[in-house]
Design a protein around this nucleic acid. Structure first.
Lengths: 225, 225
DNA sequence: TTCGACGTTATTGTTGACAATCCTGATAAC
DNA sequence: GTTATCAGGATTGTCAACAATAACGTCGAA
């Protein structure tokens, strides 16, 4: 093991991609901001080649837009698009929630509880970066319990698509706290095998960030945006 | 215009990717068969670079599997996986069918009719390649009418995932004829604004290829497959 | 002063060569 | 006869230099 450098490049690509994803989600990279390949390469100490693939990945995820000979820029989602994506998310996450076997396996509960502990801690100390990660982990674990990995994969990819739209809420203490409470409530619903409650929670969990994003966008660019 | 060579590479990548997709779907490339980058490069008269990206695309679509330093091979889907994917497809295509505005716009009907004419013609003359293309176009046009491009995109990607599993049915005259009849029936349901019928048709349209694939697989490898 | 042509620079796209890795088959030892 | 070892070839992964392109600023003319 000669340290970090000897990783498979595929791993490095994912590493760079998710690092960039985080920066976009947390708002460190603003919409319309360009992603310069060489800059990123030197910043992460990888070859441009790797950055290229990472950006291609981000493009596939819909976080970034690319045009010939002009490079990539973080993508700006229109309110319409965000609304459409959320409506699909709602349908799919509802579907997944309905398929989670109740009562859940004990491991599911313990895993969720553990992750949510980390999430709550991150929210407590205002660490939006850690909160973001824990939040993703929570949803993966939750929907992962539905037993259909392909459904989970789609839910994940949809969540990633609107990650870019979340820079407005990802750092907001109010929203983070609300998400935390929602998560605990979901765990309770699972424990109680209360499917109706669980589905309802999942559905309503989505609204805040969608509404906040759309509202802030309309405020900035006018209702026509 | 200096001929085909002057295309943007992005376009060539997609071209190669969909050409390979076709070959996989039509069974010209068997499961487990390896995809040699240089071979493909020379076959399509593009650089290896382009092939690489195309294969990455196929990997993302789930048609192909890649391992470090060993390259890509067309992926073999287990019956379980196929079942899972189809169950998500069913949910999503049902959802989309429910969202198609009824009565549909005249353009929708005419577009579908035109595409289906091509499909029927292809089926008639046993041109499975053209039938495959027309089939894809039909479903895109149909679900595209639901008005949510993101939903359509997901439906498309799921269809692509099981394309590999379709090599068993894609060339079968019986299945092609059945698909053709289903399509005509869907158009009729649209014309009649019969939502219930439409949704039912979409749902049942999926079963044959799934069942055929699973059956053939279990026959080949035993129920344990 | 403003507009447009032009050259410069920053950035991306492409290429071929090289390095690393894995598979195959042959040879030799047990 | 079987297994272990090790070349040789085939294939993928990495790289750095080069070409192509678009953004930018400058200069000159109306």
């Amino acid at each position: 093991m000669d340290s970090v450098e000897r990783q498979a490049s595929a791993a490095r690509v994912k590493q760079v991609a998710s690092a960039l994803e985080e920066e976009i989600v947390l708002g460190w990279l603003q919409p319309r901001e360009r992603l310069i390949e060489e800059d990123i390469a030197s910043r992460f100490e990888v070859k441009r080649h790797v950055v290229r693939e990472a950006i291609a990945e981000l493009e596939r995820m819909g976080l970034v837009e690319r045009v010939q000979n002009k490079g990539a820029a973080v993508r700006m989602l229109s309110p319409t698009e965000v609304g459409q994506i959320y409506s699909v998310r709602e349908a799919l996450e509802t579907l997944a929630a309905q398929q989670i076997p109740l009562p859940p396996r004990p491991e599911t509960i313990s895993a969720l509880t553990k992750i949510q502990g980390q999430h709550a801690a991150a929210v407590e100390r205002g660490d939006s970066r850690a909160a973001f990660r824990a939040n993703m982990a929570f949803h993966n674990a939750l929907f992962g319990a539905c037993g259909n990995p392909h459904l989970v994969e789609i839910i994940q990819s949809l969540a990633q698509k609107v990650h870019g739209a979340r820079s407005y809420t990802a750092a907001s203490p109010v929203h983070l706290a609300r998400a935390r409470d929602d998560h605990w409530a979901m765990i309770e619903a699972l424990k109680a095998s209360d499917r109706e409650k669980l589905v309802q929670l999942c559905r309503e969990h989505l609204s805040p960030s969608r509404d906040t994003y759309i509202a802030s966008l309309e405020q900035r660019f006018g209702k026509a945006g």
